[in-house]
Amino acid sequence: MSVEINVTGEVVTAYLSGEIDHHNAKEMRESIDNAIELNMPTLLVLDFKNVSFMDSSGIGLVMGRYRNLAKSGAELHITGAEAGIGKMLKLAGIEKLAKLEGR
């Protein structure tokens, strides 16, 4: 599985792994959205520690989840992004939507 979900109280953490591209994003998106729907978190944490590659499909994934969460006023945090992933997130201006934390 390319996403592992952990639920602690009102916090859902999604541990992403492998390569995030258009081919893989759909499945990742669905498991994260399932977890959001099921648990109604106030905070979603997307953990990129084990992500080795990401293109703009990954940015689409982050932005889409942000929009989903915004409906219920929940927050989005991003953790563990290494340099290459960080470069993509920065180019997309993700820091305006989500709190970024180093690894």
Binding site: R29, D55, S56, I59, M88, L91, A92
Partner: peptide, 14 residues
Amino acid sequence: GGERAGLGFAVMQS
């Protein structure tokens, strides 16, 4: 729309 960010060309250029 929806799940695409519209950043592909921006990424290639940068």
